[in-house]
Design a protein around this nucleic acid. Structure first.
Lengths: 179, 179
DNA sequence: AGGATCACTTTACATTTGTTAAGAAATTAC
DNA sequence: GTAATTTCTTAACAAATGTAAAGTGATCCT
């Protein structure tokens, strides 16, 4: 869940925990219920799901962003995806109950969370639109143009599945563009 | 915008208008600001955008559903897409201001609208995931399985762009499945 | 009824992508 | 520092999709 950047964390030290984890740490496993949200102080995180034995990445998160399996965190259903660090990371970890406390004791935060959810909706919609409108090559070029930080910090194999193609195909597209 | 099905419209006859329009009527044109939301009494509606001269459909709506360019309606920015009836249709048409009045005077409606937005977010997310996980054929089979009403009422060319493929490719997939 | 338009299919060919395998380059582990 | 592992690229071939064009029904319009 994004939006933790609007919270003045210093007031609530007793409600969250700061943790440091190595690369490839699983924060939430597919099929389990999400009980914690995380706020990234340092590091890179990806969200992925198992697809016929292969892993398919569908989102990246970095410093200053909050991350959780939004639907599992909210509904209590098992998560459809795994949340895993790409790099070593420092994170704030907060339980659902304590996050509710923070939200309730911060005036104006709930509407802000609603606005953040709306922004996230728009982002998912535009990701879907890009998939049915653009070619993989166009999506890769858009990634270079709009989110170059992802390319700098994420292994290409994860970017390939995020673009909906294989690593081989992404490599060919890169080769074509470099000439 | 979905969710109008939760409103007891009979209390608010003075705030909305019932309209009847023929097939292919444009309810909102791409590039213009959305000032009205619609609730479908009868008919089928599609939302599409211009993509390099071709039209690309990205959502369908039917009886009992509300429809608007959710981001334009909320933010006042020009709409990225056109809303158009596929069939002749009967609709409730309500302005943004009057919908606010309805929402404010119906206790418990605002959280319900928030829940509807959350559900819509999940739907967009799953549409995106399906695009990066499944083949066009698998998406077509899922459409048959999960939303057969769409196939019965929507021309295949629109379904093709919704699946992210050309009408020719969809025709081939159908041919393959029929044997 | 008849002409026009629209929706869908089929064909042929070009392009793109997937798959498998091999190998090079970079990184990690010890 | 060297071996092991991981990441990325390249090649060859198969499969899927895009494009353009033609043709067949179906529907619409007057």
């Amino acid at each position: 869940m994004r939006g933790s950047e609007y919270i003045d964390w210093s007031q609530y030290r007793h409600l969250y925990e700061e943790i440091s984890v190595p690369a490839r740490s699983v924060l939430l496993e597919e099929g389990k219920v999400s009980r914690y949200a995380y706020f990234i102080i340092e590091g890179a995180v990806r969200v992925w799901f198992n697809n016929k034995g292969k892993d398919t990445t569908f989102q990246f998160f970095f410093e200053g962003e909050g991350v959780s399996s939004i639907e599992s965190f909210r509904t209590g259903q098992p998560s459809m995806c795994t949340i895993e660090t790409i790099t070593a990371a420092r994170l704030y970890k907060i339980s659902k109950e304590n996050l509710e406390l923070v939200i309730d004791s911060t005036p104006g935060l709930r509407p802000k969370m609603e606005e953040i959810m709306f922004q996230r909706l728009l982002r998912y919609a535009s990701m879907f639109i890009s998939q049915i409108r653009d070619t993989p090559q166009e999506r890769y070029e858009a990634l270079i143009r709009d989110q170059p930080h992802i390319l700098q910090r994420v292994p290409l194999q994860y970017i390939a599945s995020y673009l909906g193609i294989t690593p081989v195909s992404l490599s060919r597209i890169r080769n074509k563009l470099h000439r």
